[in-house]
Design a binder for these strands. Sequence first.
DNA 1: AATGAATGAGGATTCATTCAT
DNA 2: AATGAATGAATCCTCATTCAT
Lengths: 210, 210, 210, 210
Amino acid sequence: MTKQQLSRRVEPRKLPSRSNSRARVEAILAATRELIFRHGLEGLTTNQIAEHAGIPVGSVYQYFPNKQAIVYALIQDWLSVLEDKLDAFPMEDYLQKGRDYALQQMSMTVTVPSTFDYERKLGRILLGAIDLYPELRELNDAHVEFCVESSVKFLKAAGSKWSVARLRKLGRYILEIRRTLYYTPDEIVADAIKWQEIATIAIISQCLDD
Amino acid sequence: MTKQQLSRRVEPRKLPSRSNSRARVEAILAATRELIFRHGLEGLTTNQIAEHAGIPVGSVYQYFPNKQAIVYALIQDWLSVLEDKLDAFPMEDYLQKGRDYALQQMSMTVTVPSTFDYERKLGRILLGAIDLYPELRELNDAHVEFCVESSVKFLKAAGSKWSVARLRKLGRYILEIRRTLYYTPDEIVADAIKWQEIATIAIISQCLDD
Amino acid sequence: MTKQQLSRRVEPRKLPSRSNSRARVEAILAATRELIFRHGLEGLTTNQIAEHAGIPVGSVYQYFPNKQAIVYALIQDWLSVLEDKLDAFPMEDYLQKGRDYALQQMSMTVTVPSTFDYERKLGRILLGAIDLYPELRELNDAHVEFCVESSVKFLKAAGSKWSVARLRKLGRYILEIRRTLYYTPDEIVADAIKWQEIATIAIISQCLDD
Amino acid sequence: MTKQQLSRRVEPRKLPSRSNSRARVEAILAATRELIFRHGLEGLTTNQIAEHAGIPVGSVYQYFPNKQAIVYALIQDWLSVLEDKLDAFPMEDYLQKGRDYALQQMSMTVTVPSTFDYERKLGRILLGAIDLYPELRELNDAHVEFCVESSVKFLKAAGSKWSVARLRKLGRYILEIRRTLYYTPDEIVADAIKWQEIATIAIISQCLDD
DNA sequence: AATGAATGAGGATTCATTCAT
DNA sequence: AATGAATGAATCCTCATTCAT
């Protein structure tokens, strides 16, 4: 992606309506995901994506206004899955079962990143992409906002006396702790999940004990 | 950087001997650092670097065999500063002052990343670069090794009964905890440092209490 | 052409299917032929070729993976014309008309290089190109093989008792005699053809008289 | 060599007077010869030559005005050796011993190219260089002139009745026959020399029998 | 005279995007 | 709507030659 490409529109050109359209959009995203996973972002070309997806380049531009929009959509998908996981978590149930249990569950909530090596590598690359292209930043910001809100809601419900502002800061750091899993090498994920839980409980305890 | 450029030699072409040479190497690195800081890795061109450094392109290639070699040198510099900081830490002193004090200091050791926003942003970008280009990986690996060893040494000295293999895993995760600081937004660094300390002490305690 | 370019793929990127494609490939080859004829191989640039062919550089690379591939195609064309000429020669007819007549015809077969100055100069340059770029060598080797086989077949048919191995050596030298025509200055081609015939008959006689 | 370099002066910048100068000129030529032999003309750089010769680039330009001048000198050396060989040939002696003997010896004269593979490959490359750079053409022309004169003198002395103009044409072709040896693969040199002799005698006979 | 760092125009190749069919 | 050939600005890197020291 050259400089000129920056600051372009990134919304999909059209909402895929016909099933064929959706299939093509999926094919494009799948191809991109695969290529990115295998070779990283460097050297990713639209022609390559099209070829890998089994459709002509021209058609790629039927659904995406430019190359970044594809990566944008990829990240969007990925983040929304993460957010769905967070959303689906039945926090209320656990909160009724006592502080310790709640703490443990909260830390589990934190552990969203998939423990599957494939997803973790992909996540790492996508996280890198966010840093690479300004347009993708907004996606990250929205996601961060979502995660932070999720944490704040939980911590409040768990009984924290901290101000929302302070809880938001903590929520932001909790997200960072969660993201360590992406950068953790495959060989130590199992242990890392455990340590992540310990670390999370430790810092969360602060706001519950105050 | 296109695909063909990958897997190239990355050692600086020559050791700068004449004072002018050293100045030029510095100018190149400074220019690159500045450009990377401002616009990220994307769109970084050799001509841009040369222009920014106030020297002709040809001269850039007098000191570096290719573009990546410059980024390589940049990362090398950066990591070696981090390693020097770790090395300079007088761990022994603290170990004599009791477990709690030692724990706290250990966690401080962990907090190596500069708290200055500039360095943290640069560090984040350089960390991203490592993921982008295979050649840079070796630099990271060596650095990781160094940090892990440093942690293991400390934890052993602090009295951990864990096996070296297990301590190495922990050391690896401690590094990840440390790196969270790079991804922490400027507004919450102050708090993040504190939480990072808490989190670190919590996970380190495991291996000391066993 | 710099060193890095050597050992690259040289097959045309795609078989020209649409008439326009074929026309463009022709235009590229014609432009290259013309430029090479006028200025030699040195200083031949892809931009020059494109400009001369009246198409953008990018389009040149639509049909040829790199500069050498163009020269490769040029040589391929040229050699295949030569081989067609050899193939088209009705050797059998002549063999029945007696040794002397056959000998004369054989030597005529040998005289394949065009007597037109343009083609001879071009041939000389292309022959030089083969020596310049390793990839082109395989083309020459295949052509040599073809010519040698052609000679051996003829000499056998003409009644030579020599072993195939020996005839192959002779065939290889006959090719060299044929190629003298390329290096012969325009002013003496007419005579050179005659002398070439004499020379050829003389050395061929050896294997028929043994 | 880029286009701009063409049409430059090619005489050595200074006649090497001091022994050190001569040694350096020799070193430059030897290095160039070696590099050309190994990698051909493509990719030959002055820096490479200097490094291989063990002297600084700047010094190369003390003795040669530009890169081509080096190749020029190399070819000059090579051709002068060939001419010395021709000169040293005691043709008169042989002419007194009868036509057949003379013919045979004449054809030997023709066989000047070294039968050593190294020299033959080098000669082939140098011959190619002549075709590549216009400036080198004059060297070839002078050499051709020399060889033609040598042949004419011999043929006249041997009793040919042909006009000088016609003998010059024959002489020119005899040179071409001689040059076939350069293009002959190593495996068949031995046989090629024999066939070259036969071919030469055959065409020379024409002018003696008329 | 000797040096070798400095120069910068030039060249091969790429690739996001368009648009004629 | 679908296609995929066409485009050409942009990018990395080279290297003959110079000239300050």
